[in-house]
Design a protein around this nucleic acid. Structure first.
Length: 470
RNA sequence: GGUCCCAUCGUCUAGUGGUUAGGACGCCGGCCUCUCACGCCGGUAACGGGGGUUCGACUCCCCCUGGGAUCACCA
């Protein structure tokens, strides 16, 4: 009945924030589900009671929320499913696919060290395998792995991978405190949640044969597995904190657009011909597992930045207002959606690589008092420019309308009367209005600032020059 | 070390036996211009090495090298 319905999942463990790699895994699963019109499930893997925290859970939700990756079912918490796991352990115990083991951790450790010293593999040797032990105080439950033959992983992304069963040992599925372990709960959850497509990082490849064996022992059909290549740092080792920001939310703080971030992440390992820029909808439309590459990729901040700039440029200004406002608020300006803020954004969106930078560039629009950049003032606010500025003040004051066309005319008039080129007049005016040598076009900022503020800022510049030359 | 995976410009990648090996980021020029950007035009730069297979290999096979992953009562 639901045979064709793709069901994917994202199963983070709440032992820290959502990091870049996790976000990419979530994205791939989400995109695949959305593209296939399937379901996407969120599952919190919190069986490690010691390392799991509520803060991490909240941080993961917040990050997914920012990325606008939504789920159809869940979140499920493994910590609430222990009864289910127990039932499945019983099944395995009954069928003889699992057994109790009473070897102590110390003993196991010695066993491994000895094996290593002898040049062998650090594996459990299966002493309790045939002992027929019952549940006891410190007993763990182990899975009885086949000792011969092979297990084949038919990977959607990587192709067939063959594992020798004798490389696998009898791994623990229930700890001595009665809690189940990862490989086991993943399989039970994926079976009971009808997950039929598992997309995850390459680092899980080695777990997969164990899980396949578990599926078989539990008589369940295998999901499609797809292992995506890792994300590496600039030194080509696995991405970690020392490569820079790992937390997804850090990118929000730096002023990235979620769509740009997603666009970058998906292109790191997936491609669609020559296309680099994708909107969210395009991604859903065009994403397929078959276009995921095989090789790991280096996370490149520069390219992410460029993509962010491209998205900022493309998003309609009115949709940027709410994204920008937190960054303005950080400077003390509480803005509301308005035609004014939209025009402000229009002058800045081609000039800003991040929202944070955009907010900083926009500050002059909001300030009551402009403070001049020292070098800029020294160079451009000199006595020589006084006549043209004063003339400009007069001309502007006489203007009824204050639109770009009118302003151009005003400047033209001043140019004619002073014999100066536009650049000679515009630069001092720019400093007077913004305090800096770089800004949006002089006419657009004058129009947006409006007559009163422009005149008063120009007058202030005149005062500044006169004071200085005294 | 065992096992597994990977290998095209500095980086992300397109390429699926015959291409001047394409695009993007970065970098370097130029144009545009009221500054800074944007945009546009141009340039720089790659098939790790060795064997095969083939009329012909970036493409297929093997070996080497290099890189990565994984070997828990973590997930």
């Amino acid at each position: 009945m639901e045979n064709n319905l793709i069901i994917t999942r994202f199963p983070p463990s709440p032992t820290g924030y959502l990091h870049v790699g996790g976000a990419r895994t979530a994205l791939f699963n989400w995109l695949h589900a959305r593209h296939m019109k399937g379901k996407f499930i969120l599952r919190i893997e919190d069986t490690d009671r010691l390392r799991s925290t509520q803060e991490s859970i909240d941080a993961i939700f917040e990050a997914l929320d920012w990325l606008e990756i939504d789920w159809d079912k869940g979140p499920f918490f493994q910590s609430e499913r222990f009864d289910i796991y127990r039932k499945y352990v019983e099944k395995l115990l009954d069928s003889g696919d699992a057994y109790y083991c009473t070897c102590s951790p110390e003993k196991l450790k010695k066993m491994r060290e000895k094996a290593m010293a002898a040049g062998g593999k650090p594996r459990y040797d299966g002493i309790c395998r045939e002992k027929g032990l019952g549940s006891g105080e410190d007993a763990v439950v182990r899975f009885r792995s086949p000792r011969t033959g092979t297990t084949v992983l038919q990977d959607t992304i990587k192709g067939n991978i063959v594992f020798q069963n004798n490389e696998l040992d009898d791994f623990i599925i229930t700890r001595s405190d009665g809690t189940p372990t990862y490989n086991f709960v993943v399989v039970v959850d994926d079976i009971t949640m009808n997950i039929n497509t598992v997309i995850r990082g390459d680092d899980h490849v080695m777990n997969t044969p164990k899980q396949i064996l578990l599926y078989r022992a539990l008589n369940s059909p295998l999901p499609a597995f797809g292992h995506v290549p890792m994300v590496l740092g600039s030194d080509r080792t696995r991405l970690s904190k020392r490569h820079g920001a790992m937390s997804v939310l850090a990118y929000r703080e730096m002023g990235y657009l979620p769509d740009a971030f997603l666009n970058y992440l998906v292109r790191l390992g997936w491609s669609y011909g020559d296309q680099e820029f994708f909107t969210r909808d395009e991604l859903i439309e065009k994403f397929t597992l078959s276009n995921i590459g095989q090789s790991p990729g280096v996370f490149d901040q520069e390219k992410l930045l460029a993509l962010n700039a491209a998205h900022i440029k493309t998003v309609p200004p009115n949709r940027l207002v709410n994204r920008l406002s937190p960054f303005l608020k950080a400077h003390g300006y509480d803005i509301q959606p308005s035609p004014f803020i939209e025009s402000v954004i229009k002058t800045l969106n081609a000039r800003s690589k991040t929202l944070k930078a955009m907010a900083e560039s926009a500050l002059f629009y909001f300030k009551d008092e402009i403070s001049y950049d020292d070098k800029a003032a020294n160079k451009f606010l000199r006595p020589g420019v006084l006549p043209s500025i004063q003339l400009l003040i007069q001309t502007l004051q006489a203007l009824d309308r204050f639109e770009e066309k009118d302003l151009e005319g005003a400047f033209l008039a001043v140019m004619e009367q002073t014999g100066l080129k536009l650049g000679k007049i515009a630069q001092p005016v720019r400093i007077a209005l913004t305090g800096k040598t770089a800004s949006p076009g002089i006419f657009e900022i004058i129009e947006i600032l409006g007559k009163d503020r422009v005149i008063s800022r120009l007058k202030k510049a005149v005062d500044f020059i006169m004071e200085k030359s005294d």
